[in-house]
Design a protein around this nucleic acid. Structure first.
Ligand SMILES: [Mn+2]
Ligand SMILES: [Mn+2]
Ligand SMILES: [Mn+2]
Ligand SMILES: [Mn+2]
Lengths: 252, 252
DNA sequence: CTCAAAAGTTAGGTAGGCCTAAGTTTAAGG
DNA sequence: CCTTAAACTTAGGCCTACCTAACTTTTGAG
């Protein structure tokens, strides 16, 4: 609540990684954090203990870790900076979307709030980053859209592409090549059986992609009939993720 | 020459500070570096020993420190980034010139070369930062202009304002108020004796300033007669500063 | 020339952030 | 249940980058 000491870069990255794991699985496992940050599990245990004593997270040894409200706020602040930076780099400086993540990963720890807000203003206060991830507001509210994966899209249906992970540059380059980017309308033309190739229609072209790729692309939950532009603003924002898919670490 | 390991932020700041002290005094004294970086002298001794063993500088104990070619190259790279960042922040994002230094001081360690060059390109490859400091080229050449201080300007003469330190925000705010910024034509109208107040003409106004302020403002060495715009490009660049004013540390 | 202050260095310590190796706990299969 | 592999933590180090306190070298005033 009060003026906490400024966080270091590594600490911001830990909180961010834990936030993302927590919203996917309900809690973050030591080894998942280690994998996300590319450090040894022992390093995570050590850092987690420190951050727990400092009030940023709750740690039940051997059971995983969860953010406190204070830790969640810090995580969302870093995520906001990251995503605004990515948006600015692509939108203003002409970066390709497969190269903004690494740059933002460093700048997010160095840019002042003032700079971030100036960038956001220059972009007209965007609500999603170039990969379709929602940008939390300055006071820590984030609005997740309901979605399914492209792999789940029934044959014949059309959906609006929503989002893809920003962490795989070569995947991003390929998606750009076939024009599969957030906002694009994509139709499931055919799906070969036994996890076979998937034929899509995007604009005038009909790229054929693997099921593995399709599973990584998120599309809007509701079928998109024609050119209805769903107004993103105005709906009530929620503080965290929608419904975590349960997995290993259940904390408590 | 080969791929040296990436430097840390603190190391980049040490090399930059040493570069600046060296170009002013011929060599950098431990206590001056300590003062510039706001660390204890003992910390400087330690860092300097490490950087000397790593080949970035030569250290003669008790006599000061000097950059090796390799250290100078690293320093100029950081200075280039710093100054391009300052230029971008004022030129594109509307930062006032008194607040860019702190921001650039952090971003200079996080921005990639690609980002820096994109910013430079967006600005049309500027040759000076908002405070008038020359921007080294990507291959480490820097071109200092001949200058004198505004305090030295003879009464009746007009000169083009060249440069001022970026480290004193309140001075910068005041200079902006009286329109004394790089490129401005300034005339020495009158100087009261015994270090008394100095009357200037800048445009239509005649601000009266102290000799202390005037000593901090650099103007072009040659009198500017009217509106001749001196072409900065085309002259031969030199690797380092012109002629260091000798002072305490003489190294060797 | 002397000698004390200033400048610089050395010694010893802290904290952050990482590592490997060696335990400990948990979960899961048989 | 028992056993064992996987997940996790603990122990013990290392490196960077800082600090203070104590010592050494240089300098310059008298
Ligand atoms: Mn990203
Ligand atoms: Mn990061
Ligand atoms: Mn500056
Ligand atoms: Mn800096």
């Amino acid at each position: 609540m009060h003026a906490r000491p400024a966080l270091t870069g590594p600490v911001e990255d830990y909180l961010k990684a834990i936030y993302e794991l927590e919203s996917r699985f309900g809690a973050a496992a030591t080894s998942d954090v280690a994998h996300a940050l590319d450090v040894a599990p022992a390093s995570v245990t050590g850092m987690v203990r420190r951050l727990a004593t400092q009030g940023y997270l709750d740690h039940v040894p051997y059971r995983g870790v969860q953010l406190t409200p204070c830790g969640r706020q810090a995580a969302l602040r870093t995520i906001r900076r990251h995503r605004i930076l990515e948006s600015y780099l692509t939108g203003v400086l002409g970066y390709p979307w497969d190269r903004v993540h690494d740059e933002a990963e460093r700048l997010e720890h160095a840019a002042s709030d003032d700079l971030i807000e100036r960038m956001a203003a220059a972009l007209g206060h965007p609500t999603a980053d170039p990969h379709g991830a929602p940008i939390p507001t300055a006071d820590g509210l984030i609005e997740e859209q309901p979605h399914r994966t492209l792999a789940e899209l029934p044959v014949g249906e059309t959906a609006r592409m929503l989002r893809v992970s920003d962490k795989n540059p070569s995947l991003l380059r390929y998606l750009a090549e076939i024009a599969l980017q957030p906002g694009a309308e994509v139709t499931m033309v055919a799906r070969a059986p036994f996890d076979g190739p998937i034929t899509l229609r995007i604009g005038n072209s009909e790229p054929v992609v693997g099921p593995n790729l399709a599973a990584q692309v998120l599309v809007a939950a509701m079928p998109s009939s024609g050119l209805r532009s769903a107004d993103a603003s105005g709906s009530l924002p929620s503080t965290a993720a929608s419904k975590p898919k349960s997995r290993k670490p259940t904390a408590r």
